[in-house]
Design a protein around this nucleic acid. Structure first.
Lengths: 254, 254
DNA sequence: GCAAAAGTGTTAGGATTACACCCATGT
DNA sequence: ACATGGGTGTAATCCTAACACTTTTGC
């Protein structure tokens, strides 16, 4: 879409036993969401709906494709965006990770052998909740608040939960939140981001005292415009300064 | 060996494209070591040594085996021990991760197709430097101080370096060090452990002040015996107490 | 002028750092 | 008696937590 790098066109052969699954977190200053897609199976003869549930997004990988590339491809298919924050967090490969009847039926109907183990490499990703298509592989896509996720297909509930833990741990130690903010942001936005993703409340004055110590959060000579209240000062995150001063972490351990 | 659980005898079929690699760290109060095995290849005709370098330990996994099981099996083969601390940290699957001539020759000589991508799930493990056999799959096994590791085969140098970073991060946040200490240990031993694994120096008085706050480090009414200096008080780590009081981490962020 | 969010300071308690000497034991 | 590591306290600085009111803007 608005990226300068061309996405490679894949012509290779897909690896049937190896996939990536992406837990895509979306943030909108109100809540943390995860991207789920509908999985509807209908009886071919009667046309009756057999089941209707939800999965994460994922895909098998091409033989000539790196794992990170495969995950980025899933994201690109969904959003048209490249260079989105993406982190590998765990690989899932229990021989019986697909055993429920619905899951086996779904695989069989999609031309796969339900008795063959599929190992899947889990990634999580973080983006702003806008910028996403509403369809993927012909299936409906929906944002779901993380607190309301239940009954996912396959072992996707496990994958989702581990991803959420990994994301929160990462946010406590590394400056990944800036992926979700505009170039210039206010301190209230930054605070809200931590509150929403970590699921906590923070004190405004203490929060500001803390970030004031972080030299890589640079106050600009610029304010919000057109807001119906006192306009806030804008800041930006200086990644170079951060890499230099890297001892002082965003240490939000609670 | 001294374990109550029987190790399953494997009769299944090995998966050729999927392996685990174990970065086995060994601690001995003097330094942190990593377990490496010699890889020697000789020309079948001339008997001349073609190359002689080092690899990590790893293995392909059985079709009916979970990833964690496969890693535990590698460890069992090396040590005869079960229930050793083992952590999955990253999966490596670049299509060109095996491209050097030595590596391709080695694979070919071992009945594998060097052009077929092998995805490997990386684990690290932590144990005391004794308790290890000197041979594995007919190859020599050696402990090497982590500072002196270089020129490993395949992409094992990358795997090793990422494992070391992951181990250190983990030690900063979770009580994994106790895996390496006897049931009853002294505070100097505990301090030494952190110093050796993290590669830092810590102040004795400050260290003790810090651990005094951790209620789950319980001082015993017992002292060292037979040492040529003032005998130290023994402590033990109460995991139940730890799980309860779990906010106060062993927060050794430097 | 009202609603809405921005912005600001103090105090008390706890944690961190830097630093040096005496103690109990085996040989 | 000596070598070896065990064990202890203080002061300065910094960080954390709790807590409430004034300011600036758009409408």
């Amino acid at each position: 879409m608005n990226s300068s790098i061309e996405q490679k066109t894949r012509v290779g052969v897909l690896n049937d036993y190896l996939s990536v699954d992406c837990v895509i977190f979306g943030f909108d200053f109100n809540q943390l969401n995860v991207l789920l897609v509908d999985r509807v199976m209908v009886d071919e003869l009667t046309g009756k709906e057999l089941f209707n549930d939800l999965t994460l997004t994922g895909n098998h990988i091409y033989e000539d494709e790196d794992l990170d590339e495969a995950a980025a491809r899933v994201l690109f298919d969904l959003t048209g965006l490249q260079d989105i924050y993406l982190e590998q967090f765990k690989t899932f490969g229990a021989p019986d990770r697909i055993k429920r009847e619905n899951d086996r039926a779904w695989l069989a109907a999609n031309g796969r052998d339900p008795d063959k183990r599929i190992v899947t490499v889990g990634y999580y990703s973080l983006l702003a909740t806008d910028k996403v298509t509403l369809e993927w592989k012909g299936r409906n896509v929906r944002w779901t608040p993380v607190a309301g996720v239940r009954d996912l297909a396959f072992d996707h509930m496990d994958i989702f939960q581990e991803a959420l833990v990994a994301l929160r741990k990462k946010l406590l130690r590394e400056p990944i939140g800036f992926e979700l903010l505009p170039e210039k942001f206010t301190l209230s936005q930054l605070q809200r981001l931590y509150e929403v993703i970590l699921g906590v409340e923070l004190d405004k004055r203490n929060f500001r005292k803390k970030v004031a110590r972080m030299k890589y959060l640079v106050p600009l000579d610029e304010k919000q415009k057109g807001v119906a209240h006192k306009p806030a000062r804008l800041y930006n995150f200086d990644r170079d300064l951060y890499e230099l001063n890297r001892k002082e972490l965003l240490d939000f351990a609670i």
